[in-house]
């Protein structure tokens, strides 16, 4: 079976000359949930932006058989949904329902269908009651849920969540984990949150300096890179 997402030898340099990706090989199978771990600035977010053509580097990226290139971009953006780290950047329509329907209307759905699918997506994330509210009046956790609704409403085949638990309180993180676990899509989770990754992912990929340093079961990656938040008392954390 061919993987849903396949990446070969991906390299990318920013305009200012900083090399962000130095040859990344990656695959994601249907129904799989993979965690992207690694230090800040190691290229995780840059990598993810290549999956739907928001950034274009050298190398090959394909999603369910379609190569990421200009003529395929609308189709690719339908297949890959990215929930960005900063919900504020994603929610910009005046009401929650309109925001969730934004991508559906762009896909060419008529307003009745779009409204129905947007309401269904809000139902899935448990935010139906907020449909008529303004996004900027919601709490951080609620904003995240609405942002996820805006993506799953488009029924992507691959769901990418960039730091989904950042800025959520512990109960918020827990309930978000429950929500994400129930979504049927193949998922890529970019995260620093080890318990979250442990709970949801079968496999982890560890980024270092723009390439994949290692991959394997989440526990193994966490042990190998000493990748957890436990601080020891009276010793300065390193």
């Amino acid at each position: 079976m061919t993987p849903l997402v396949e990446v070969h030898g991906l390299r990318f340099r920013y305009d200012d000359g900083t090399a962000a990706l130095n040859g990344v090989d990656f695959h994601l199978n249907a129904g799989e949930t993979v965690a992207l771990l690694g230090p800040n600035g190691s290229g995780k977010t840059t990598f993810v932006l290549h999956l739907n053509g928001l950034l274009r580097g050298q190398g090959r990226v394909s999603v369910s058989g379609l190569t990421v290139e200009p003529k395929n971009i609308p189709a690719i953006r339908r297949k890959v949904g990215i929930v960005f780290q900063d919900s504020e950047s994603q929610l910009f329509m005046p009401t929650v329902l309109e925001d969730v329907a934004f991508g559906l209307l762009n896909r060419g759905l008529d307003s009745v269908t779009a409204r129905g699918r947007a309401s269904a997506a809000l139902e899935t994330v448990g935010m139906s009651a907020a449909a008529a509210r303004a996004p900027y009046h919601l709490s951080a956790g609620e904003k995240k849920r609405v942002a996820i609704a805006g993506i799953i409403a488009m029924e992507p085949e691959v769901l990418v969540l960039d730091e989904p638990t950042a800025s959520l309180d512990p109960p918020g993180q827990r309930s978000l984990a429950g929500l994400v676990a129930d979504l049927p899509q193949a998922k890529i989770l970019v995260t620093h949150d080890v318990p979250f990754a442990l709970a949801l992912c079968q496999r982890a990929v560890f980024f270092q300096a723009g390439r994949i340093a290692a991959e394997g079961p989440v526990e193994e990656m966490v042990c190998r890179f000493d990748w957890h938040f436990a601080f020891e008392r009276s010793k300065s954390p390193r």
Partner: peptide
């Protein structure tokens, strides 16, 4: 960032 998020949802 905002514009990127819009493009990701098919804004044309």
């Amino acid at each position: 960032d905002i514009h990127r998020a819009m493009l990701a949802r098919g804004f044309d």
